[in-house]
Design a protein around this nucleic acid. Structure first.
Lengths: 232, 232
DNA sequence: GTCAATATCGAACGAACGTTCGATATTTAT
DNA sequence: ATAAATATCGAACGTTCGTTCGATATTGAC
């Protein structure tokens, strides 16, 4: 399993690359024909959406604010998005697309390492795509059922991967079977969310991502109990 | 430490009692003079607010919807609330008031039990006040700094109680000191949130509140590792 | 340099919002 | 029974919202 530095080098794209993928994914619903122009402006629009949605909520962000922030007129915006709701859906869907592509590459060859690999990959991924994860988490509750189906696929995939890793581990007597894999996965998920939901808190406390991973794994392995009880 | 049945009997109030407390707390800012009328209508208004805010968000709930749901006219509503923002603040502040009163009673006489008592009390409390907790969690991000100060006092008190219990436990070598009390508290909090944020999920899986408490404590004590390693 | 294609603009529209307020209904006190 | 106090009503006001669209500016092809 690579560390964050290696992960970042392999997967983190520049805006010009990231939003080129974005444009290609939604090309047929975007009015702008010129790929270079579209990629630049999409980066501006989506990043402004993140900024404005973070300080209020997406539904409280008005398209006039977005127009001000991006320096693109109201009519201009509508060349890039079909409507406001679609803008939110684009973000969910692209994150889903991007995340699935990465999580599918997690190394599951070693049963003793699968869970840690999965968890670290998720944390690393949520770091390089922090605004996306933050947005998706905050706004997912405002999606209707049909939209949710398309938006949180990777979220479910993630949960499944954790469950399977635990399930296999329980079979091999690596992990406790006091709790079901589903219950354990349920308890683990919010630990991971904390990294991208409360990033400022960890920055302020000067806890870097590797320390955070260690912390999560330590808690996950022993809870609050004293570790290595056998050796004492 | 009592179980949930005992807790419920001791602390769960009927609407007529709960909103009487509510009315008394905010009496001077409510136009209605008749206490009985006010208590009845406040129960209707607040409960309708919970219902409408759950299916959308509070800021997406319009006062016209609230008027429809409560069968109280627009003008009528404004006899009970100063404005829409105040309604949200009332809910935060009352929950704060109510929660603090209960959490202050948690038994901390036995260092080996303090953490479990605190956690169970919080879970029990969040059960009998579920809509309040759900609302407060979802809407707290929309409060400005000044409002937050008044609204999340009990939340911080809760976190402090957990930290202190762990800190004391570390001193007494009950708990591992691999992680700081603050970090552990940070990891524990979302475990507790899950109960009131995803209640339908636990209902569906037929996990009752005592089972949930056991599950949280089990995870918290051993993580995913095999328990009782010494005895094997 | 011209013309067609593309990109951008911002005023305008109807709908929905929070809030107000004078009119009306109901309750309470005498 | 009457008057004063209290509670309720809903139309109306000014704003802001998402969205549209004809006009204008910019770009690319020949």
């Amino acid at each position: 399993m690579m560390n964050f530095k290696q992960f970042k080098k392999k997967y983190q794209l520049k805006d010009s690359e990231l939003f080129a993928e974005f444009y290609d994914l939604f090309e047929e619903t975007i009015d702008i024909k010129n790929r270079n122009i579209a990629v630049d402006k999409l980066a501006i629009i989506i990043n402004a959406t993140f900024k404005l949605s973070a300080s209020q909520s997406f539904s409280n962000m008005s398209l006039r604010q977005l127009s001000d922030e991006t320096q693109i007129s109201m009519g201009g915006l509508y060349a890039y998005i079909k409507n406001k709701q679609q803008l939110s859906l684009y973000i969910h869907q692209f994150l889903n697309h991007f995340a699935e592509n990465i999580m599918i590459q997690v190394d599951i060859s070693d049963d003793y390492q699968t869970l840690e690999n999965t968890i670290k990959s998720h944390i690393y991924l949520s770091e390089i795509m922090q605004p996306w994860f933050f947005f998706a988490f905050m706004e997912s509750k405002n999606l209707n059922k049909e939209q949710k189906k398309y938006a949180i696929q990777s979220e479910l995939m993630m949960e499944n991967k954790i469950m399977q890793a635990i399930s296999k581990g329980q079979e091999l007597k690596i992990y406790s079977n006091t709790l079901s894999p589903k219950t354990m996965a349920t308890h683990i998920k919010p630990l991971l969310h904390d990294w991208y939901l409360k990033r400022w808190k960890y920055k302020q406390r000067k806890i870097n991502i590797e320390e955070f991973c260690f912390s999560v794994m330590a808690f996950l392995n022993h809870g609050i109990s004293l570790p290595h009880t056998l050796n004492e």
